[in-house]
């Protein structure tokens, strides 16, 4: 039983961070039909902003994190939209998908070339203290990661539902033409979505990197996990991406313990295939019809 509790907590902690990345995925899809295959690299990169600001500019950790979030909002939000999405979106989804794959490779190789190909230690944001509950060792970083990630997603959900700007963003996602007729500044709302995705990626990055270490290749794992979580939960629902992230985090850990450590990476993908076959819209997603 302590083992099960331990695994659930570790899985939920990791899963809540995956959910941050997955929510970003769904936001971009809903707002602009952008499937961002560079999302893993978006989560990898801000940790290097933090390290660079600390080592080259002498920033303390907290200031480096704030600056990294601001940089991510600018570069991974506004600049990404301006330079990649806007020129490509008119050519359809597929060219944009390919462009984001290329962007992911570029970011990965750039970090490798200009920072380091080696894994880098990343300072922990929280004290490494552990307390025991029902025989399971619960660490403060696990609890803090979960609280911050879930708090961020809940705050986002409240923003989207309870504020005028949030409702305008939802209207834009549901039907941009009607939203525009009703006076919503659609372009601005889409931009907000990209900015939020940049911030979510940065938060996920600073939470996950103390354990994963900062490395240029981290995006490979995180990108697949975020994409899988978004599909499993429901690509068109924020709460679906949230559930998807948590499910993947828990299933990954449970499968390593109770199924096979060797095939642990396969289990979330098997889950993905099953979901696509049985419930293509995802656990909490809604079916979307298309006409030609």
């Amino acid at each position: 039983m302590p083992e099960f509790i331990q695994i659930m907590i570790s899985g939920l902690s990791a899963g809540s961070i995956y959910a941050l990345a997955a929510v970003g995925f769904t936001l971009l899809w809903q707002a602009s039909q952008t499937i961002n295959f560079a999302q893993g690299e978006f989560v990898m990169l801000p940790a290097f902003f933090v390290l660079a600001l600390m080592s080259f500019a002498g920033f303390p950790l907290w200031l480096a994190i704030l600056a990294a979030i601001a940089l991510s909002v600018l570069l991974l939000g506004a600049i990404f939209k301006r330079l990649i999405v806007e020129p490509m979106i008119s050519h359809g989804t597929l060219p944009l998908v390919i462009a984001t794959i290329a962007l992911g490779l570029l970011l990965k190789e750039a970090v490798k070339e200009f920072y380091s190909p080696l894994g880098q230690p990343f300072p922990s944001l929280f004290p490494q203290e552990v307390f025991v509950v029902a025989g399971a060792s619960i660490s403060i970083p696990d609890i803090a990661n979960f609280i911050i990630a879930m708090g961020t997603i809940i705050a986002l959900q409240l923003f989207l539902q309870r504020t005028r700007t949030g409702r305008c963003m939802q209207a834009t996602a549901q039907n941009p033409d009607v939203a525009q007729i009703l006076g919503v500044d659609v372009k601005r709302m889409v931009l907000y979505t990209f900015l939020i995705n940049g911030a979510l990626a940065a938060i996920a990055s600073v939470l996950i990197t103390p354990v994963y270490l900062a490395k240029f290749s981290n995006g490979e794992v995180l990108g697949v996990v975020a994409f899988t979580a978004a599909i499993v939960g429901g690509f068109n629902q924020i709460r679906g991406a949230l559930v998807g992230g948590l499910v993947i985090g828990v299933v990954d850990n449970l499968s390593a313990i109770y199924f096979s450590a060797e095939y642990r990476q396969a289990v979330p993908l098997i889950l993905l295939i099953v979901i696509i076959l049985v419930r293509p819209q995802g656990l909490l997603g809604t079916a979307e019809g298309r006409t030609v």
Partner: peptide
């Protein structure tokens, strides 16, 4: 990158020592 399950499995076993044979970054994680 994630060793949470592996460590939990060791904790719940009756091992009295751990032998680790991983490469550098995985050892650190």
């Amino acid at each position: 990158v994630d060793f949470a399950a592996d460590v939990a499995k060791i904790k719940s076993s009756d091992a009295d020592a751990v032998f680790v044979y991983l490469t550098e970054e995985e050892s650190a994680r």
